[in-house]
Design a protein around this nucleic acid. Structure first.
Lengths: 170, 170
DNA sequence: GAAAGATTGTTGTTGACGACAACAATTGAT
DNA sequence: ATCAATTGTTGTCGTCAACAACAATCTTTC
């Protein structure tokens, strides 16, 4: 049953129907579906949580069209002007190849500028533009609003605890 | 500075070099790069953590070639035989379109089988094969080993707290 | 019981993202 | 002067989420 064409479902149904009832288990009508070992796995919970948190971030900052990764890049550059692309990539744990496209889009929107380094002609010194600085201030306000959504979802003190537990990854 | 060709870096360096020194900030030699507002964002910490945890899961289960999503699908099917693809997708929060390819690969490996539903000829009743059941038992042992890695990384009680905080997402 | 609307599995596309490999330009070490 | 390492860039590959369309089928409604 590797590949299935347009007519495969009908054919399979006709062939295997007689056996189906004996094999099928309970109907599982509603939401009584157990997760078994999955509930004890941190990775599963974290995946679901990250999905929720990123969607809320994107929605909350939809008016300014900024995604989480773009926000992290601008924040780090704003706090450390003159960083090289390599330094930003290493600090944020993203590939330097990926940062190229991120900076391309941010530079097109006049939020970030690549300035040739004075000491190393291979590297670029990254800076926020004037427009980027005022924009980042607004992004931070919206991001703070998103963070309040997180606190509303999991509880204010739970959020604090979470940040403390995961501090070793930042 | 939207597009850059092969020669753009050299040209830009030559043109802008005189201004560079005055504009560049401190050199940021080592690892004293601040994250500014990023440290207060749960999403950033969660993203870094999920990256780490998924990589460890993949590495720990590399010998059996099972990824986190595949493991979650097999676990849910194993605990609830006869589920439809729609039910599995909804329970795990993945798109039913995505589940198609996931099940295709698992079916090719003879771990899962799609059996035509007796009551609804549109849907498939999902079951583990005999081979899939014994394989899942081994996957669970390896996943438990991965979970111990998590506990080693963030602490045993911190892991418990994390699972408790994020329980509302599972 | 026939028409209309909803559901299920499937296919396809799009875009963000991580990983990897190659390359030119440049730097630093020998 | 030469050789290895670094930096930015380009490209490809595979995973993943989101969305749209479609045929087959079920359910509702008249």
């Amino acid at each position: 049953m590797a590949t299935r064409q347009k007519t495969s479902r009908k054919a399979a149904a006709a062939i295997r129907r007689p056996r189906a009832r004996a094999i099928n288990g309970a109907a599982h009508a509603g939401d009584d579906i157990g997760l078994d070992a999955l509930v004890g796995h941190a990775g599963y919970a974290v995946r679901r949580f990250q999905l929720w948190i990123f969607q809320d971030f994107i929605k909350t900052l939809a008016t300014v069209d900024i995604r989480p990764t773009q926000y992290s890049v601008m924040t780090v550059i704003g706090a450390n002007p003159g960083l090289s692309q390599m330094a930003v990539a290493k600090r944020l744990g993203i590939e330097r190849a990926r940062l190229v496209h991120l900076l391309d889009s941010l530079e097109e929107r006049d939020l970030v500028s690549r300035i040739p380094s004075a000491t190393d002609r291979r590297s670029h010194a990254l800076h926020l533009t004037a427009r980027g600085k005022t924009a980042l201030a607004q992004f931070k306000r919206l991001a703070a609003e998103h963070e309040r959504h997180v606190a509303d979802k999991i509880g204010k003190d739970n959020r604090e605890r979470l940040l403390q537990i995961l501090a070793c990854f930042t």
